[in-house]
Write a protein that binds this DNA or RNA. Structure first.
Lengths: 327, 327
DNA sequence: CGCGGTTTTGAAAGCGTGTGCAATCATGGT
DNA sequence: ACCATGATTGCACACGCTTTCAAAACCGCG
C-alpha cells in the first residue's frame, strides 16, 4: 500500500541503494540516473520515510518544545518566534504542552522516546537530574526564561533585575512614592527575580514596596488584584506588575474605578507583548528580547547537538525600557 | 551508548521479545517477569524507541498541526485547545507553522514523511488533490475553519452566516443605519462567508453595507481601516469586523477620535477571543465554539485513523451572540 | 590492448522494535 | 503416570532506510 524505496527501485530498474543515494545529497551516483530515479519517485509519490531514516542516521530533526498555556499572550508570542526559528534551521517542533499544574517530566520522557534531537524548555520546572537524563539520552536541552540552579543545562534568559532597575528609575523620576507590586506564582523563577530586582533597585533610592500581592500572570488576576489595591484606604500611586497581561488587567481595574492612568496611578508591566502597545493601554513596560532569546537558545542548542562539549552556558539578554503612557 | 531493548534483555536474563512484551499492554507474559523487566529497564533508563516501534506498528502517534501566525490571538487560543485535545487522546502534536504567504504543501509533505497518523489543518489553502494525497499516504486530514469545495476532506467549521445573521439582528434592533464592514484577506474562506452572510442578513431587513474595507485580521489593520472609515465625511454608525482582533483595533480608532462606543459608533467582531471580554473593550461579538470545534475535529480524525470509510463529513457548529457593550 | 586509478553500483549488514510461529512449560483431569 | 490444554517463551523475520564493502564499470594513457 505505502510506496517504499523498493517499489521505486523496481520501477526504475535499479537497486534500492541507488534510490537511497538519489535522495541523499552529495552521494555517489550518476547525475542522469539520479534524475531518472527522482522522476520515477515523484511519479509514484514516493518520499523517504523519515522514521526509518532516523533509525540509522541517528538524527530525527525533531526538537521538543515544552511550553505552558498557549492562550497566554506571552507564551504564544514566544512560541511563534520559536517555531519559526526552529523551522528556519531545518528542524521541526514537536509540541509538548504542559498545563500550569502538570509535571513536566513524564511529558518530556515521552518526547525523548521519539528520539528528539534536542529540547527547548520554556515552561515547568526542570531539575538538574532531568537535564542530565536528557543529555545522556542524546537530547541536549536549553532552558529559556530561567536559569537552573545546579547549572545542569544551558539557559538563556532576560536580565530581569536590570529590567526592574529601569522601571525603578522611572518610578523615582515620576515621583511615585507608594509603589505596589502584583506578582505571579511565588515559586516562578521570573517572579522571584523580578520582585527581588525591583525591591533592590527601589532600596537603592531609599524606597520600599508599599504592598505586594500575587496573581497568576493572567489578565483577570491582574484585574482582581489591582481592584483590591486601588480600593484600599491607602491607595498606591503606582502598580508594578510581574508581566504585561496582569498590567493590562490593572489598567482595566483603574478605569473601572474612574481613576486616570498615569495621573492617579501609574501602571507598568514586563515583556512588551504585542497587546501592550494597543491604544487603550499604551503600557509602559520592559521589552523582553524574544527574538534574540530564541536565536541565542537555538544557536546554543544546535551547537550542543553538533557535539560541542564544554561548560554550561548562561546567556543573559538585556531588556529595554518602553516608555509609553501608563507610567 | 543509547540503551536498547537488548541491553535490558541481557541485564534481566531474558530474551528481547520478553522486553518488548513487558512494554506492550496485554501481551502474554508472566506478571512477575514483567515487573522484573520493568524494574531493570527503569534502572537502566530504558524507554522503547518510538521511531523503531512505529516502523513495525504502523502508527506513530503524531498528528500534524498546520497553523498560521501564532501571535494572532485567535490562532493561539485555538492551538491551546487543540494541543490539549490531542494530548488528551494520547497523541502528540507535530507543529507545522506556515506564514501567511507560504505554501502549505511542501510543509505538509515533510510532515507526511514523518509518517504522521493524521493532520489537522487550520491555516493555508488545501486543494482537493492535496487532501487526497494525504489520505492515500495513510494520513487522514481534517480541515478546520473552512469547508473544502470539492469535499475532499472532513471539515468542521463555525456557521459563519448564522453568526452574521445574529449580528445583523442586533444592528437592526439597535437602529443602526450606516453599517460598514472591515474584512480580512479577500480570498479567505471565513472572510467570504462572513461578508456574504452579513450582506444577506442585512438585505433581509432592507439594508445594505454602506462601505467595505479590507484589513489583514490584525489589530493594527483594524485600527487603520477604522480610522479611514471614521474620518470620512459620512461616518458610519456601526462597524462590523471580520474578527475580534480588528474590532479591537477599531475600538482603539474610535477612542483616538474621541468617539463614544457604542453611542457614536457601534463596533462588533467575530470569534470571542479572550481579549474581547477585557474591560476596556467589552466587545459585542459572536462566539466561535472553539472547544466544540476541536473535539469534533479530533473525533472525526481519530475515527478516520481507525479506518472508518464513508463519505466526507462537514460539521457546522452554531455560534452564539455575546452581547457586551460595544454594540 | 592492458593497466592503474577513479567513480558507480548492488548485495548485505545493520538500526531498534513488534509479532507469527513453533517449541516449551505448567496445569489439571483421568 | 499420562495426555490434552493453554499460557509463556525465544527465534527469526519484517519494517524502510542508510551505509560499508567489494565487485564492476569506466577513464585516460602507455
Amino acid at each position: 500500500m505505502r510506496v517504499t524505496a523498493d517499489d521505486v527501485a523496481a520501477r526504475a530498474g535499479v537497486s534500492r541503494s541507488a534510490v537511497s543515494r538519489a535522495f541523499t545529497a552529495g552521494a555517489s551516483i550518476q547525475p542522469d540516473k539520479r534524475a531518472h530515479i527522482l522522476a520515477v519517485a515523484d511519479d509514484l509519490g514516493y518520499r523517504p520515510n523519515l522514521m526509518a531514516r532516523s533509525l540509522t542516521g541517528g538524527a530525527t530533526g525533531l526538537i521538543a518544545v515544552v511550553v505552558g498555556s498557549l492562550s497566554s499572550p506571552y507564551e504564544s508570542w514566544f512560541l511563534d518566534h520559536l517555531s519559526q526559528g526552529i523551522r528556519a534551521r531545518g528542524l521541526w517542533p514537536l509540541l509538548v504542552p504542559v498545563s500550569p499544574g502538570q509535571e513536566i517530566e513524564p511529558a518530556l520522557d515521552h518526547a525523548l522516546a521519539y528520539q528528539v534531537d534536542g529540547a527547548v524548555i520554556a515552561a515547568g520546572s526542570v531539575s538538574q537530574k532531568l537535564a542530565e537524563r536528557c543529555t545522556a539520552n542524546g537530547a541536549p536541552i536549553v532552558v529559556v526564561g530561567r536559569v537552573l540552579d545546579g547549572g545542569g543545562a544551558d539557559s538563556v534568559c532576560c536580565d530581569n533585575r536590570a529590567g526592574m532597575a529601569m522601571i525603578a528609575e522611572r518610578l523615582v523620576a515620576a515621583g511615585r512614592r507608594r509603589i505596589a507590586w502584583i506578582g505571579g506564582r511565588a515559586d516562578t523563577f521570573s517572579n522571584v527575580e523580578r520582585l527581588d530586582g525591583l525591591t533592590a533597585a527601589l532600596a537603592a533610592h531609599g524606597l520600599a514596596l508599599s504592598e505586594t500581592r500575587r496573581g497568576d500572570y493572567s489578565t483577570d488576576s491582574g484585574l482582581v488584584q489591582a481592584l483590591a489595591l486601588l480600593t484600599a484606604p491607602e491607595r498606591p500611586d503606582a502598580i508594578v506588575c510581574g508581566n504585561d497581561a496582569m498590567a493590562i488587567g490593572a489598567i482595566a481595574a483603574a478605569r473601572r474605578l474612574g481613576l486616570r492612568v498615569p495621573q492617579d496611578v501609574g501602571i507598568c508591566g514586563f515583556d512588551d507583548i504585542p497587546a501592550a502597545a494597543w491604544e487603550p493601554f499604551c503600557l509602559t513596560t520592559v521589552a523582553n528580547p524574544v527574538a534574540e532569546t530564541v536565536s541565542a537558545a537555538l544557536d546554543l542548542l544546535t551547537r550542543r547537538i553538533g557535539g560541542e562539549k564544554g561548560p554550561v552556558a548562561t546567556i543573559r539578554l538585556p531588556p529595554a525600557l518602553r516608555l509609553r503612557q501608563s507610567l
